[in-house]
């Protein structure tokens, strides 16, 4: 479904991603962990198409198409979804309008008819129940005055409405209490099917108790330095990141020619 090859990206001339390789097959859940500043969020935003980042090298294939060649809206229409780490406030645009506009664009791209107001209401009620959000949010401006937890639930609600093939969750767990975390994870798990995949970017192992990954990758200094199963996340929780940093440094030193 997704194949990232040697991806390099810069922001304001500074290289953040330094050769990412990652392959995601249908139905898989991949967790990407790593210390602050390692490039996790950059990877998520590059995949969604944020123009603050410049891809300098490498390729990303999504469903056998060149993802990097697509506008952000086309990626969304083809089933790529980014749950934002910092959801943006949009004064004057209510949540219902925002959700319905996005859904209709995605439906049009799939060759489906636009959803009418009546059917949309039925759909949105069902999805809001999934993330335990009150209907009153529909009339409020997008994210304006939402608490941190409400913003994250609202992201998962959008995901539930758009039903993406590839969901990228960018630190969706940060700032959540345990109840909100459980609700968010439940929402994500409900959407998981043998066809749909997810990339879960997280700083902590905690979220992975609720969303069980097939693979865990450790991102450090713009590269994936270690990959493993879900037990890798537990190791990180126990021992932190320093041991990986040391092992990676040692491995790099070993490859240097003697006497250099």
């Amino acid at each position: 479904m997704l194949k990232i090859t040697n991806l390099h990206a810069t922001v304001d001339g500074t290289e953040i991603l330094k050769g990412i390789n990652l392959e995601v097959a249908p139905g898989e859940i991949h967790a990407i962990m790593g210390p602050n500043g390692s490039g996790k969020s950059t990877l998520a935003q590059v995949l969604a198409g944020h123009d603050a980042f410049t891809v300098t090298e490498g390729s990303v294939r999504y469903e056998n198409e060149d993802l990097l060649d697509m506008a952000p809206e086309d990626r969304a229409r083809k089933g790529v979804f980014l749950a934002f780490q910092y959801p943006v406030e949009i004064p004057g645009v209510n949540s219902a309008y925002f959700l319905r506009t996005g859904l209709n664009e995605v439906r049009k791209a799939r060759g489906e008819e636009e959803i009418d107001a009546y059917d949309f209401l039925a759909l949105i009620r069902e999805k809001m129940a999934l993330v335990e959000m009150d209907e009153s949010f529909l009339k409020r401006s997008v994210n304006e005055g939402f608490s941190g937890g409400e913003k994250k639930r609202h992201e998962v609600l959008q995901m539930a409405v758009l039903e993406p093939r590839l969901a990228i969750l960018d630190e969706t767990d940060s700032g959540l209490d345990i109840d909100a975390l459980r609700v968010v994870a439940h929402g994500v798990n409900q959407l998981h099917t043998p066809q749909n995949s997810a990339i879960v970017v997280t700083h902590y192992q905690r979220l992975l108790e609720y969303i069980v990954p097939d693979f865990v990758h450790v991102l450090m200094d713009g590269r994936i330095v270690r990959s493993g199963g879900k037990e890798l996340a537990l190791q990180l929780e126990d021992k932190g990141y320093d041991w990986i940093r040391e092992e990676t440094a040692a491995a790099a030193a070993a490859t240097q020619p003697a006497g250099a």
Partner: peptide, 10 residues
């Protein structure tokens, strides 16, 4: 960008 990321054209 937020709107674009939800499928809405620029």
């Amino acid at each position: 960008f937020y709107l674009q990321a939800r499928g809405v054209g620029l």
